[in-house]
């Protein structure tokens, strides 16, 4: 995946809570068998039905940082939600709380998910609504988000940060532990099923 070190861009304020994966990309857009091209499904219902939807407003065109309400990414396990955001030009999503699977998927696909306290999210919303061209910098090295004179820290565990900074894929890392995997396989109880035709 593409490494993430630091990113500066404009932000789109998405003032909605519990944005589920069916809103990020509906199921009918999951039929593609490639790993790119999912931007057509990104928030497609809201983009189509709500002229005033934040991503329809010209002042937020080109935003690369999405600032969302709490519980972003609830619902399905579709990594396509991360791909759609990346394909739609986003590198970062900021929220006070993410759904687990979405957040886990983001770390595998190179989309940075940043958890900030809701008060910091509100301040960021206010800043980019007042001045949509406000540059926002998300620095994974320093673990900070900066807009104007405001810099706030965010937490991310060292291991996930390292993987994102290096753009590492997990399979290669796991293959270093082949001996441990083989040792576990030798210990597995004999009654465990196989999927081979019974």
């Amino acid at each position: 995946m593409q490494p993430f070190t630091t990113h500066t861009g404009t932000a789109a304020p998405l003032r909605r809570s519990a944005v589920d994966t069916d809103q990020i990309i509906p199921a009918e857009y999951l039929k593609r068998i490639t790993r790119t091209g999912f931007e057509d499904g990104l928030f497609v219902a809201w983009r189509t039905n709500e002229p005033d939807f934040v991503l329809n407003r010209p002042e937020h065109a080109g935003a690369s940082i999405l600032v969302a309400g709490p519980d972003f990414g609830t619902g399905s396990s579709r990594e396509h939600a991360c791909w759609a955001l990346l394909d739609g030009g986003f590198r970062v999503v900021i929220s006070s709380r993410f759904a687990d699977i979405f957040r886990n998927n983001s770390t595998k696909s190179g989309l940075l998910t940043v958890v900030l306290p809701q008060a910091d999210v509100e301040a960021l919303w206010a800043a980019v609504e007042a001045e949509p061209a406000t540059p926002v910098t998300v620095d994974l090295q320093a673990r900070t988000v900066t807009h104007g004179d405001t810099t706030v820290p965010f937490e991310i565990d060292d291991y996930t940060r390292w993987r994102l900074l290096e753009g590492l894929d997990d399979v290669g890392l796991t293959e270093r532990h082949l001996a441990d995997i083989e040792a576990h396989e030798a210990r597995r109880p004999p009654w465990l099923p196989t999927a081979l035709p019974a």
């Binding site: 619902g75 396990s77 991360c82 886990n104 998927n105 595998k108 696909s109």
Partner: peptide, 29 residues
Amino acid sequence: DSHTSTHGAFGALAFGIGTSEVEHVLATQ
């Protein structure tokens, strides 16, 4: 698939994963 949690009814630890993780399990179990 996120509804993999269904299988927990048997006392299995069962959970949904994304496509990168599907690849990881296929490759390494």
